[in-house]
Each structure stands twice: as structure tokens, then as C-alpha cells.
Amino acid sequence: MESGNSISTPRDIDDVFLPHVKETGSDKVFTTTNYIVLGIALLGVMAPLLHVLASSFSSTTAVMSGHVLLWPVDFSLDGYEAVFNYKRVWVGLGNSLFYSVFGTMVNVTMTFLAAYPLARQNLPGRKFFTFLFLFTMLFGGGLIPTYLNLQKLGLLNTRWVMILPGSIAIWNLLITITYLRTTIPTEIHDAAQIDGCNDIKYLISIVLPLSKPIIAVIALFYAVQHWNTYFDALIYLRDHGLHPLQIVLREILVLQEMEMGDIDLHEYYKLMGLKELLKYSLIVVAAFPILVVYPFVQKYFIKGMMIGSIK
């Protein structure tokens, strides 16, 4: 498997081959068109993000009169001040952090516990157990039986419901199994066995240290999933104190509900515009952590996709 490198640096045929030949007329047109098409794609993807970012740093009057395009008008931090004074946002942020960190730890542990035995080619019953996992990817009990099950287990409206039911994502299990199979040579295992190394010792002292890249990949997948999802919280959590950030965001951004009492803004109260401005700033605050970290971890996501696709 050739990982990220081959994607970002494909062979430049024209540079290697016939480098001295000048581009013909039709090639020049082609190259120009190509850059224009990509430029449009770039602008199209960036414009909405820039618009939101610009609006979040503008004043309420500039936003409410619709004067912001892609650059802040009448620079102000009022929107951010409002976000930071909104208590629900902070409660949600704290909860999301808890679910993401603790949940991901459980996820990675459980995924590894399953992947390590299932990656062993000669384990009797391996095919059957793998099928048990795979089948749940194709068919499930459905929303309501799942809900009733969690209700019976007493997990509804507890923090556990955000962590336990999704302990293993089958897709991540599959890429972990594939990774273990393709990157750790069986010879190492044979040698270790001859030296009297048992399976658990082998896992801890050899497999885990060799699995750092895949742990990074699945931990990222899980963490982003925890951070971004709202579905489970919507269905299983009633207490406001347990809600993750995405539920709070939904109330404010989509349902347009805001508890103005929670904001300490007596002097701004009459400025309806602040409500609108707050949304832009909130979007930036919510998307910021992921978008800032993402360029640095991008290659891990791509790696994960590639391992998945060679399956």
C-alpha cells in the first residue's frame, strides 16, 4: 500500500518525459482552463466559510443590513463576547469534550480487543465472529427496538448512553483488522511464540507498539464522530446538563431558540441583531477546533480511507 505521499506527489510525466518540449497551443488552453475550473471550485468551497468568518467579526449593524460579503465590515468582537457569555455553550462544550475524550478511549480499547484476535488467520471460529460483526453493518434492529433496549438497560438520559452503545464502529474495526494483517508479518508472531511469548504479552509488547499509526487513525475517526454527532443525544438525552455542544448548536442555529436570560447583555438587550451576530460567531467557535487541527492530521484520515479501500 502506498500511503498519502503518492497522492500528493504523483509522477509528473511531462517533467520527466520530454521536459524540453514546449506546451502546444491546445495544451496551453487546456492548462488555463484547468486552473480556472479549480479556481472556481476553490472559491466555491471557500466563499461560504469566508462569509461566515467575516460576518462573525463584523458589527451588528453591518450584519443586519446585509453589507458583509467576504471581509469583515465595521470590525467588532461583539458576537464572540455574546458567545462567551452564553452559559449553555460552555456546558455543551464541556460535555462534548468529555464524550469525545472518554468515548474515544473506550472506542479504541474495544476496537483493539476485537481486532487483534480477529486478525489472526488461524484462530478457529474467526470467520464466524467476523461475520457476527459484519452483519450488523448491513442490518440492525432499527431505531425503536434499539431505544427500547437502552431504556430497559437503564441507560437513557445518562452519560453512558453516549459512550457504550457505539463502542465499536464496524468500519473502524475492519480497517484495524486489515492493518494488523497487512503490516505485521506473521514471522514475528512465529518467532515470538517460539520464544515462549503468549498472546496477551505479544499484543502488549509487539502489536501495540507497531500499531501506533492505526491507533491514530481510528482515534481520530472516533473523536470527530463524537464531536460532530447530535443524533444519539437528541434521542436519548433529556437533561440539559448532559447535552453535548451539537444539541446546543442545533437549538441556536437551526431552531433559532435562545434563552436570552442566560446572556448577560442587559445593555445590548434591545439589539436584536446581536442574536443574529452570535450565530456567526458560534459557527466559527464550533467549527474552529476541527478546522485548525485538521490540516495537521489530514494525512491520517487519508491513510484511513486508503486502508479501507484496499479491503
Binding site: 468551497v45 448548536l249 442555529l253 437551526v254 459557527i283 464550533a286 467549527a287 478546522l291 489530514q298
Partner: peptide, 11 residues
Amino acid sequence: TYAPHFISMVV
């Protein structure tokens, strides 16, 4: 162009 993939549905 990869970036929006990581934005949550709510956002």
C-alpha cells in the same frame, strides 16, 4: 476542498 468534510451536520 477536504475541509468541509469535517464540519458537523448542525454547523
